[in-house]
Amino acid sequence: MDPTPSPALAALGVELTPDERLCLQGHLRRASFAADEVLCREGEARAGLCVVEQGELRVEVGGVPLAHVGPGAWVGEVALLDPGPASATVRAAVDSTVLELDAAALERLVAQEPHIARAVVRALSSTLARRLRQASQHGAEEGEGEGGGGGDEPPRTARSWLSRLFGGRRGA
C-alpha cells in the first residue's frame, strides 16, 4: 500500500483523516487510459465510480463534449449507486490514471469500514443533490426564454442543460 493517500482523494474523502483515506484507497483499483481511449460508452453497462488521479476525462453525449473532469473529481456515481446503462460516454482527453470503485467494493466498504463508507456516500450524495437542483433550476430558466433570442436554440439549450447533469465536480 502507498505510504500516503493519493491527493486525488481529497474531495471524495473530505471528511476522512489521511489514514482513513489510505484505507479507502486500498478498496480502489488504479487503472490507466491512453489519450482518446474510451472508459465507458453511452448505453453500455458501466463499472462504477472513477476518480481522476492524473490527466483529464471528457464526458460526451451523442458525440458532443459536455464536461471535462480533472484530478480529484469523479464520474460514474450514478452507475455506482444505481447500476444501469451509462448515460454518457467517458473518454480520456489525455493520458490519464483513475481510481475505480465498483458496487461490490462499495458494499464491502459499507460492511467493513462503515465510517469510511458513510463519508464517501455523503460526498457522492451532495454532488448528486446539487446536480438535481441545478438541472431543475435550469428547466425553469429555459421556460422564461432569453430576451430577443426567440428561445429557439435547441442544441445550445440541450447542451447547456445536459451539461448541468454531467458537470463533473472540479478537481483541486
Binding site: E77, V78, L80, L81, D82, G84, S87, V121, R122, L124, S125, L128, A129, R131, L132, A135, L165
Partner: peptide, 9 residues
C-alpha cells in the same frame, strides 16, 4: 445516495 442516483437517472 442510491435514491438520489435513481432520481437523477
Amino acid at each position: 445516495a442510491r435514491q438520489l442516483a435513481r432520481d437523477l437517472r
